[in-house]
Computed example of a mutant assay.
Amino acid sequence: MQEDFVTERKEVTLSAEELYRAACRWGIGEVLNRLDLSSNGWEQAPDRLPAWVSDLTASSFRGCWMRYHLEEQAGEEFIHCCEEQVIFGERMGEASSSFKLCGEQVWESLCHAWAKKTCQSIRTEEDQADLPAMLLSRNEYDTLISRLKEMELDELMNRLAINSGDHEGSIALARSLKRPGSHGEILFYGRHSGCEKLELHQVRFVSTDHMNWILRESTGDREDWLIASPSSRHKFQEMLELWLMHSSSVEAPNECL
């Protein structure tokens, strides 16, 4: 195992347009497109990117982009790892279009630290092992989420039960959705050396004081599935770490997601 150390910290604040320019150079413009963070005017953005941002290109890389709501606060951050270094980024404020980026030498301890920090959004360590995973239609789930505030709890339970065939699990999930302590989404991405295709995996999470849910969903336009699984904070952190530190292949989601 390589020795853990951190080089001098490098920081810069970029506009959304500048971040999109950097992301395209890194090979993850598709990630920002999927997150609706692209800009039609990015090519006209001032070219003031520091070399450690603009010159960061690699044939193999991994990353996570996370959006979350914790009580009355909302946040957005990401981590991008390649052979040279790791870049942490976060939106400067909920309504801001600027992102603060920090560059450091990439070693396992940094990935572990980010995963541990991210899991602060997960409210409970409990693992409801008695409840099995539920298979749902992603499109139907999105329809229910769009009407979440106006739907009564009983109606939400019934709709989930009809869609999944799991009455008990639908009750637990509906209660979590109606009164979440935190919720959000993470887009996992990666590319292995020698492979041009960018690997993408979408995960949502819902957490209360009593229960956590991880919701893995299809990313293809022709696919329509979503798997809701009860989970613990430990398993959530483990999922993040396995993805970020599994550098030999982008097939890791089949093992850890």
Rank of each mutant, 00 (worst) to 15 (best):
E83S: 11
H167A: 12
C256D: 08
D154I: 10
H210F: 15
N158H: 09
W42Y: 15
C102W: 09
H183V: 00
M134G: 05
V86M: 12
G63C: 03
K117M: 11
S38Y: 06
E76M: 06
K116C: 07
D127K: 03
S164C: 01
G194H: 07
R147D: 11
T124E: 04
Q73T: 08
R216G: 05
R222Q: 14
R34I: 05
E8G: 04
R147A: 09
E3H: 08
C256Q: 04
I28R: 00
V106I: 11
M1R: 09
E83K: 11
I186G: 00
S15M: 06
C64G: 08
G89Y: 00
C82D: 14
R216H: 15
E255S: 10
L173V: 02
L156T: 04
E238G: 09
G29S: 02
F88I: 03
G41D: 15
A58V: 07
A252V: 13
K117T: 15
H234R: 13
H201N: 15
L160W: 02
G89E: 03
L35E: 14
L198P: 01
Y68A: 03
M157C: 14
K235N: 14
M92P: 02
G75T: 04
E238K: 08
S193Y: 05
R179E: 14
H167Q: 12
N158A: 11
K197C: 07
R21W: 06
W42S: 10
I28C: 06
G89V: 02
L160G: 01
D55C: 09
I227L: 11
H201D: 10
L135G: 02
I162F: 10
E241V: 09
D36L: 08
L70T: 12
G63R: 00
L37H: 03
A45E: 10
E90L: 05
E30H: 00
H246C: 13
Y68P: 00
